[in-house]
Design a protein around this nucleic acid. Structure first.
Lengths: 248, 248
DNA sequence: ATTCGGCCTTGATGCAGATCAAACCCGCAA
DNA sequence: TTGCGGGTTTGATCTGCATCAAGGCCGAAT
């Protein structure tokens, strides 16, 4: 694994993220061919449900553009988001026939899909694909555990600050920082979705966002466009160790 | 992967869980040899810290006997458990040099360790090890997401019932059900550890355990020995869909 | 121009669980 | 036998967030 230069591959790979995440062209060109053959695209509109929990799922996929969420729902309607899928994130699991969560497109969404059977065959013959997938899954597991700390121990204000920091970080390498280092981005979630993410009610989310604005931690243009004038200040509000994973 | 019969292997494998979880002897006997050569054991006493978050970690391991926890701590001391390691569970991550969480032995603990470098080498040459590890990691991710629902949306009583059900299930295939189908087990956690698991205070844990006892959902002998006379009744208290993963 | 329906904000009130405090249980060592 | 300390229970009070309720904003349809 160590000798593969995954960076250089992305340039040669066209528009499908899983190719440069899962495969190294330098030594796996034939695998690229095989991936190419079994891939296809699906599109969904904002708000559409991609998969219901329990549905048969005959493909794995990676997000090309747009944002999707994984959510769990209890019988009485309480909802908890358990995954936020941004471009290049992977959906589905080799070895599981059915989906464990509802997958919903929160924006218009394009996914690059691979039929499961051939993808699994590919996996069992090439160590690199399985390894890369393992690496991605371990990253997700880390994110899930960070999220658990948030859900179990953080205050509402810390939760909001943490979510804003997460989104800011994920967007940071795409979006520009504005003139004097401020970070600017659009919230991809409604207040209700934020609440489902954070284990809060939408009213509490609204109040805490207003509070952060009142205290100058963030500025708002409209309801979704966020300006973070001082990222360090935002991080202070999260309750996290300040050293952990600074802007990459 | 499909054609490997992992079941039959476990009999030939001696006392180290990872061997029958990660490797299939029928077609990977040489890998068994190699695993054998790089494995060694470590023992810890109850209460001992195995690894501090941020420490260099030059091995991966699987729990042989005893119980360990993964926890995250905020500067001000708020703690959240993010993993509970029972026998056969895997610790550590190929590809990461340092530990991301505190690992603590809550009982006397024996782990079967593999030096990381040779283990990674083994992984990159055999698809099966990486695949098996991926499968285990996906299971952990599912567990983490279940846990997120618990932390974000369940009431204190539901949290306690859920934890008891999880432990009952994990123990079920080892422990006996008593005479008329009651399930009996010992809590491996103190009230405080339960609180850290559930995102509660120890006082709330204590009160809710008492409440479940008062309502006849559980019986207690001493503070740790739990009798569940009617498992279905306990499941009702968790708030979960009743169909999900019954005792197995 | 008006209405409608999502989405969001803000206020008033209630309650589950946190916090503070005291005492209990029990194994163990002196 | 006494005292001690870690784990636990239970009570009294406080508080952060949920709940209930009303209204505002704004883009899209009529």
């Amino acid at each position: 694994m160590a000798h593969h230069d995954l960076q250089t591959v992305s340039h040669e790979c066209g528009d499908c993220p899983i190719r440069h995440r899962a495969v190294c062209a330098r030594c796996e060109t034939d695998e690229l061919q095989r991936l190419e053959q079994i891939k296809y695209y699906r599109s969904y509109q904002a708000g559409q449900t991609v998969i219901w929990s329990g549905d048969r799922m005959d493909f794995v996929a990676s997000v090309v553009t747009g944002i999707a969420t994984l959510t769990q729902t209890m019988e009485d309607g309480r909802r908890q988001m358990v995954g936020l899928l941004l471009p290049s994130d992977f959906v589905g699991r080799p070895g599981r026939p059915t989906a464990a969560y509802d997958v919903t497109a929160t924006t218009d969404l394009v996914m690059c899909c691979f039929r499961k059977k051939p993808f699994e065959d590919l996996m069992s013959t090439t160590p690199h694909v399985a390894q890369r997938l393992l690496e991605m899954t371990l990253d997700e597991l880390d994110a899930a555990r960070e999220w658990m700390l948030l859900l179990g121990r953080k205050t509402a204000r810390e939760k909001i600050a943490s979510l804003l920091a997460i989104i800011a970080r994920r967007d940071a390498h795409l979006k520009l920082k504005s003139a004097k280092g401020a970070i600017v981005f659009d919230l991809p979630l409604t207040r209700e979705e934020m609440a489902d993410y954070l284990g809060l009610t939408l009213e509490t989310v609204s109040r805490q966002v207003s509070a952060l604005k009142r205290d100058g931690v963030i500025e708002l243009e409209g309801k979704r466009h966020v300006i973070v004038p001082d990222f360090d200040r935002l991080i202070e509000e999260t309750g996290d160790d300040s050293d952990g994973g600074y802007l990459v």
